[in-house]
Amino acid sequence: TRRLSELRVIDLRAELKKRNLDTGGNKSVLMERLKKAVKEEGQD
């Protein structure tokens, strides 16, 4: 898996959309949101 920081905004939005998460905001907001989601998934 590529590091989140290497993803483009369009990629971040696609990942968030797959998880039914909000896709609004700038790159840093999107990255934080996705990071949190990935962390929570890992705790399942």
Rank of each mutant, 00 (worst) to 15 (best):
R2C: 08
K36Y: 05
A37T: 05
R2L: 11
T23V: 10
R8E: 14
G42A: 14
K18P: 04
L16R: 01
R8C: 10
K18S: 10
L21Y: 01
L30H: 08
R19A: 05
K18V: 10
K27R: 13
E40Y: 00
M31Q: 06
S5L: 07
L21H: 01
K27T: 06
T1M: 13
D11V: 02
V29L: 11
L16T: 05
E40L: 09
E32I: 03
A37Y: 10
I10E: 15
A37L: 00
K36C: 08
S28E: 13
R19T: 03
L12A: 07
L7R: 07
E6M: 03
E32Q: 07
K35T: 10
L34R: 04
K36F: 06
E32N: 10
R8N: 04
D22I: 03
R19V: 03
K35R: 10
S28I: 14
N26V: 12
Q43F: 02
R2Y: 06
I10Q: 15
A37H: 10
L12P: 02
V38L: 14
M31S: 04
D44W: 03
L21Q: 08
R3Y: 05
D44V: 08
L21D: 04
E6P: 04
E32D: 14
G25A: 02
K27H: 03
G42M: 07
G25W: 00
R8S: 15
N26Y: 02
L34Q: 08
S5T: 09
L34N: 07
G25P: 00
D22Y: 01
R19L: 10
R8Q: 14
K39C: 11
D44F: 05
K17E: 13
D11A: 03
S5A: 13
K35W: 06
K18E: 10
R8L: 04
E40N: 07
I10W: 10
V9P: 10
K39H: 15
L21W: 01
D11M: 00
N26M: 05
E40V: 09
N26T: 13
S5W: 03
N20H: 05
L12M: 11
K35H: 12
N20K: 10
G24K: 10
L16D: 09
T1G: 12
D44G: 14
D22M: 03
K35Q: 13
K27P: 10
E6G: 12
G24S: 13
S28Q: 15
Q43M: 08
V38S: 09
S28H: 10
E41P: 06
K27Q: 08
L30W: 02
T23Y: 04
G42I: 03
I10S: 15
E32C: 06
L30I: 11
K18A: 13
K27V: 03
V9Q: 05
L4M: 14
R19K: 06
D11Y: 00
E6H: 03
L34P: 12
L21I: 03
R33Q: 02
R33P: 09
T23F: 04
A14L: 08
E40H: 10
G42F: 04
K35G: 14
E40D: 13
V29W: 00
R2E: 15
D22N: 00
N20I: 02
E40P: 04
K39N: 11
L4A: 08
Q43S: 13
T1V: 06
S28L: 11
D22T: 03
D22K: 06
V9E: 15
E40Q: 12
R8D: 13
V29Y: 02
L34G: 09
V38W: 14
T23C: 09
D11R: 00
G25Q: 01
D11W: 04
K17C: 08
K39E: 14
R33L: 01
K36G: 12
D22F: 07
R2Q: 13
L30Q: 06
K17L: 10
V29I: 01
V29P: 02
E41S: 09
L16Y: 00
V38A: 09
R8I: 01
K36Q: 12
K27A: 03
K18D: 03
T1K: 02
S28P: 11
S5H: 10
R8T: 15
E41W: 00
A37V: 11
T23P: 07
V38N: 05
T1S: 11
L12I: 11
L16P: 06
R3P: 12
G25R: 01
K35L: 08
K39T: 15
L12V: 00
R33E: 08
T1D: 14
V9A: 10
A37K: 01
N26S: 14
S5G: 10
A37G: 07
G25Y: 00
K39L: 10
V9H: 03
M31F: 04
R19M: 01
R3D: 15
K27S: 08
L12C: 03
I10H: 10
V38C: 07
K17S: 13
L4K: 04
A14S: 11
K36M: 08
R8V: 05
Q43G: 15
K17V: 11
L16M: 04
Q43W: 08
G25V: 01
L34W: 02
K18R: 13
K39S: 13
R3T: 14
E40S: 14
K35P: 10
T23R: 01
N20E: 12
L21R: 03
E41V: 07
E15P: 00
E40K: 04
L12D: 01
E32R: 09
L21K: 09
Q43Y: 05
G42E: 15
L30D: 07
L7A: 11
M31I: 07
K18W: 04
T23Q: 08
R33C: 02
V38I: 08
K35N: 14
R2H: 15
R3W: 09
V38E: 12
V38M: 14
L4P: 05
A14R: 06
I10A: 15
D22L: 03
M31D: 01
I10L: 12
L30T: 03
E40R: 12
V38P: 05
R19P: 01
S5P: 05
K36N: 09
L16C: 11
K18F: 02
M31K: 04
L7C: 01
N20G: 14
Q43I: 09
V29Q: 11
I10R: 15
D22Q: 07
S5Y: 02
R8H: 10
S28G: 12
K17F: 02
Q43V: 11
K27I: 03
K17G: 11
N20V: 03
Q43D: 04
N20A: 07
R13P: 00
R8M: 08
G25E: 05
G25I: 00
M31H: 06
E41K: 02
K18N: 08
V38D: 09
E6K: 06
R3G: 12
L12Y: 02
R8F: 01
I10D: 15
L7N: 08
L7F: 12
L12S: 04
R33M: 02
E40I: 10
L12E: 03
S5V: 07
M31A: 04
D11L: 00
E41A: 09
L30Y: 00
L7G: 09
T1Q: 13
G25F: 00
T23A: 11
Q43A: 13
A14E: 14
E6V: 06
K36E: 14
L4D: 13
L16S: 01
K36A: 13
A14P: 05
M31R: 08
L7Y: 07
D22R: 02
K18Q: 12
E6S: 06
K39G: 14
V9F: 05
L34S: 05
D44E: 15
K36P: 05
E6I: 02
E40G: 12
R33I: 00
V29S: 04
D22V: 04
L21E: 06
K39F: 05
R19S: 04
K36S: 12
G24M: 12
D11S: 03
L16W: 00
A14W: 12
R2M: 14
D44K: 07
T23L: 11
V9L: 06
L7V: 10
N26E: 15
E32T: 10
L7K: 07
A37I: 03
A14G: 09
K39D: 15
N20T: 05
V9S: 10
R33G: 09
R19W: 01
E32V: 02
D11K: 00
L34F: 05
L34K: 10
V38K: 14
L34A: 07
K17Q: 12
N20L: 06
N20P: 03
N20M: 06
L16G: 05
L21T: 05
E6C: 07
S28C: 05
K17T: 10
R2G: 15
K35V: 13
T23D: 04
K17R: 12
R3K: 13
G25M: 00
N26P: 13
E41T: 06
L4F: 08
L12H: 03
L4E: 09
D11I: 00
K39P: 13
S5D: 13
L7E: 13
R33Y: 01
